[in-house]
Computed example of a mutant assay.
Amino acid sequence: MNDAEFDPSGEQAVSIELAGVMPVEYVAFHSQNHVAYLEYAHLELGAEAAPVVVEDVFAFLLEVWPDALREANLQAFAWAQLREHVERYRAGQVLRIALVDTVKYAALRRGSRRQLELIESRSGVYEAIAELPDRHYDVVVLTFLLGLETAQVAQRMGISPGTVRSHLHTARRMLAKKIGIDLTPGEEKDL
């Protein structure tokens, strides 16, 4: 499968046979988050690696499920596991640049931190995005590359909508400073 053919909506969730032996809460969590995790992993790693890494994440979550349920914020815990698995996979692989078509930003093409670092841009936007702190980076990727609304980003990352808005505001200021542009007061609210 290549990047142009990647369609996470067609990916298999928990199989019917396995769903009967897994905790009901886990099956529901898997069903609600599987596609979202695939989309993020696809942007970060490409179409071939994304399903492998995401299945590793869910296998890990199943293994620690009773402990995961005791976490203060299950979504945040699971998101952290996804990020950790993506980073671990990236560290162990020599990844080719995987091109990712996005709906809103087809002109940007490709969207992982490593890929953004490799793309040369006169304005420095790609490099600046790649240098954002992890949570700010994730909020920018989920908002602008995947086109998610604030509430959706908050749900995926296990943070509040206010925190998403704060991260977007801070990221925008950091990016403006990094690439040397001045934001007018009205522009800061565009995010």
Rank of each mutant, 00 (worst) to 15 (best):
P8R: 04
F6C: 00
N2Q: 07
E149R: 14
A49L: 10
K178H: 12
H85M: 11
H30Q: 07
Q32M: 07
P185F: 11
Y26F: 15
A171G: 13
N33P: 01
Q81R: 15
A128V: 10
L132I: 08
E17D: 13
E84H: 12
V27G: 00
D138Q: 07
L183G: 09
R113P: 02
G147K: 06
V21Y: 11
G180I: 09
S166K: 09
A68I: 07
E5P: 05
A130L: 06
L145H: 07
Q75N: 14
D182Q: 12
H169Q: 11
K189G: 06
P161W: 00
E84Q: 13
I159G: 03
P8Y: 10
L45C: 01
F58N: 05
L69T: 06
L118W: 05
Y37T: 01
V27S: 00
L38A: 04
L82R: 04
V27F: 00
V24Y: 12
S112C: 03
A78Q: 02
E117S: 14
G111Q: 04
Q115G: 13
S166W: 01
A4G: 03
L118E: 08
E149Y: 11
H136E: 15
M174P: 01
N33H: 14
K177V: 09
V57A: 07
A128I: 06
E71G: 05
V125P: 04
A36L: 11
R90L: 00
L62W: 08
D134S: 14
G92M: 02
